[in-house]
Design a protein around this nucleic acid. Structure first.
Length: 454
RNA sequence: GUGGUUGUAGCUCAGUAGGUUAGAGCGCCUGAUUGUGGUUCAGGAGGUCGUGGGUUCGAGACCCAUCUUCCACCCCA
């Protein structure tokens, strides 16, 4: 009985060229992260449910993949809870583990659990897949990679600066011609809420403003109305949506607006510091931009927030991040401030693909293919293949002595750069024929000469 | 989670109003070409029409369920 091959909703296979491209992205990231002193960690693909549940809000809990208990543990199923439609209780009775939903919460757990072994400030990066039971859409999957870097245990603004440097360096190294690094500060948003007399409605204001890109000024106003924000407040913050001028000018306008808010002014101070320091740093392809309307949905941010947009490509943000003050307190460790950023691997992949920025070498990794002309010839090729591999040159031998036409076709499809031929005449004269698959040219030379020119 | 949308050969898609044996292009295999690929020509293989029910004398087409795809919302990378 054969069955139709299928893969689960929202997942993808990655073929050799795709993995090659992805690894290329990761390798550049890792190199840059390492240069700034970040070290890799990994956490398990699944955690105890209690570690994850309740950390992402009600909406988030719904999207966490849960792992069904197996064996006798199934007997713990709380049938009464099911009958009473108490689904939370029922699912807890049949599941005690869940797939990782993001890298931040497991990281917080890790920091608290290993607090005595860690030297603070602790700088780590983590590149692993995460899972969400979301409904798939273009660019949204149920399994995808996250690349996070975080520093915990210091509230120094130095680390905000490093985040900006890393954004710039990674994305420039990947070849992006231009991108905007948007910066804002939650304290500024706090100040806005405070000044406009709605400080207890911060979350509502933030989620509404966050949609500005998508729904425009009128949309945001409507959204604020829907959320019962007072008219006077709306009128007051509306002008902020259209701030003009340089970063410095905009900061100036904001400082007029926030003059009466201590926290707001603190946020502006932090931002000014960042922009001042960045003057002393060579920045490559990125462009720093202060955007008061940048909000980011996540609620745990308390200081700087970041988002990166690529120029001239229709795509949402490819990176994001920010400062959070109390993430580890969820697991009982208080007073540990952190700042972290995340690279959207899938989106970056799509952008590089669209802009054709992947180098050829990422995909064409087979330098030489030996054709197979028979047993004796094969032995010679085998010897030579070892020598090429000693030099780190990727090569392969065609496995059987079949029609040359077929072997050439294989070379073509494998994207081999060159074909090596040792037939009876070459064997007799200790020679080798090299054919370039791109130009079609070929030449015959002594085997020793071939080896010495590699 | 809410509303909509899609599914026919390996891929992209035709298939009229429900009516014989479900088609095309590309790809694949074989040969023209036993030491030369990406071009050409000739031939060939490949489909339980997503799955399960139902309506009908008869279903790829109509109805229901389910899975999947894509889209909008919620949310998010």
């Amino acid at each position: 009985m054969s069955q139709k091959p299928r893969i689960s909703k929202g997942t993808r296979d990655f073929s050799p060229s795709e993995v090659g491209k992805r690894e290329y992205i990761f390798s550049i990231m890792k190199k840059v992260f390492g240069k700034y002193g970040f070290q890799p960690i990994e956490t398990p693909s699944f955690e105890l449910s209690e570690t994850l549940l309740g950390k992402y809000g009600e909406e988030g809990d719904r999207l966490i993949f849960r792992i069904l208990n197996s064996g006798d543990k199934m007997l713990k199923a709380d049938i009464d809870a099911l009958k009473n439609r108490n689904l939370n209780r029922f699912s807890n009775s049949i599941s005690e583990k869940a797939l990782r939903y993001d890298l931040t919460v497991p990281f917080a757990r890790y920091v608290v659990q290993h607090q005595n072994d860690i030297t603070f400030p602790f700088k780590r990066y983590q590149i692993q897949p995460v899972w969400r039971a979301d409904r798939p859409q273009h660019g949204r999957y149920q399994e995808f990679y996250q690349c996070d870097i975080d520093v915990v245990g210091s509230d120094s603004l130095l680390y905000e600066i490093e985040c900006i440097q890393i954004f710039d360096e990674v994305l420039s190294k990947l070849g992006l011609p231009g991108f905007t690094i948007k910066i804002n500060n939650r304290k500024v948003l706090n100040g806005i809420a405070e000044v406009s007399g709605e400080s207890d409605r911060l979350t509502d204001i933030v989620t509404a403003i966050d949609k500005l890109d998508k729904i425009g000024v009128e949309g945001v106003v409507e959204e604020l109305n829907k959320r019962d924000i007072s008219q006077s407040c709306i009128e007051m913050i509306k002008p902020l949506f259209g701030l003009k001028g340089t970063n410095k000018e905009r900061l100036g306008q904001m400082s007029d607006f926030l003059a009466d808010s201590e926290i707001g002014m603190k946020g502006l101070q932090e931002l000014s510091f960042l922009f001042d320091i960045m003057k002393h740093t060579p920045i490559q392809k990125g462009r720093l931009e202060f955007d008061v309307c940048l909000a980011r949905g996540l609620n745990y941010y308390t200081g700087a927030i970041f988002e990166v947009l690529v120029d001239d490509v229709k795509m949402g943000s490819i990176c994001g991040g920010g400062r959070y003050d109390d993430l580890t307190s969820l697991f009982g460790l208080k007073g540990v401030s952190g700042v972290g950023i995340s690279f959207g691997a899938d989106r970056i992949y799509d952008v590089l693909n669209e802009l054709k920025l992947f180098p050829d070498t990422v995909v064409n990794n087979l330098s030489y293919l030996f054709l197979n002309f028979g047993e004796e010839e094969f032995v010679k090729c085998f010897e030579l293949s070892n020598k090429l591999r000693e030099k780190g040159i990727p090569c392969e031998i065609y496995p059987v002595s079949t029609k040359i036409q077929k072997q050439m076709k294989y070379a073509n499809e494998r994207n081999a750069q060159n074909v090596l031929m040792i037939g009876s005449s070459e064997l007799e004269n200790q020679q080798i024929t090299i054919k370039s698959m791109e130009s079609g040219e070929q030449k015959t030379m002594a085997i020793d000469e071939f080896l010495s020119q590699l």
